[in-house]
């Protein structure tokens, strides 16, 4: 039977080796999330992922069951990536073509955009369009439509009111549609 996140956190407090359960459980989704936020190369992604897990370990006693563990770990990862952006003084780098292919392959219907059907090109275009958005719109669209987080989860991750999340999602969708039109990708 799989250990719950809470129990895994308790075990990790007693024995650092037990922290590997949490690492293995969240490693791939957080790696994808980091890349979707900033289109980093694989080395930078790995470094950021490692630092995020170290921060998670450092702050294990701050975790409270009233918050979902997933939202909490995403929050720490998000803050780590934002700190990296501020340190590097840039928001995005160009996507390597291979990276984009898996990151934005499927476009959720709720995003309300009509992009070409070729998966390879679609991923590239969505990736480029997202990188042209303001950071606050990009991070919310990534969390909602590509990480599949609910409004409450996004509220906990970004520490903003659910109403504000809804507003940013609406504005983000409009902004993304506009960027795609400017890029002559969609007829929306």
């Amino acid at each position: 039977m799989e250990t719950s996140d809470q129990n895994a956190a308790v075990d990790a407090l007693k024995d650092p080796e037990a922290f590997s359960v949490i690492i293995d459980r969240y490693r791939y989704q957080l790696s994808r999330y980091i890349q979707r936020l900033g289109a980093f190369d694989s080395d930078t992604t790995k470094d950021l992922l490692q630092e995020s897990f170290i921060k998670v370990y450092l702050n294990l006693n701050d975790y409270k069951p009233s918050l979902s563990f997933s939202s909490w770990i995403y929050r720490i990862t998000h803050n780590e990536v934002m700190m990296h952006f501020r340190y590097m003084r840039n928001r995005a780098q160009a996507f390597a073509s291979e990276d984009a292919l898996t990151l934005f392959e499927s476009i959720p219907d709720e995003l309300d955009i009509a992009v070409e059907s070729d998966a390879r090109l679609r991923s590239m275009h969505i990736a480029k369009a997202l990188q042209r958005l303001k950071p606050e719109y990009r991070e919310i669209l990534v969390l909602r439509f590509f990480e599949g987080k609910s409004y409450d989860e996004i509220s906990d991750i970004l520490e903003m009111a659910p109403g504000t999340v809804a507003t940013y999602i609406a504005r983000g969708k409009m902004a993304l549609g506009k960027v795609l039109q400017e890029m002559n990708i969609t007829s929306v």
Partner: peptide, 26 residues
Amino acid sequence: MDDFSKDVISEIRDRGITPRPFWYFL
């Protein structure tokens, strides 16, 4: 435990990182 997990835990040990105590957050 795969290589990445081992690397993270090894890094934690090398830096001497321990979880911040509960009273710190309180």
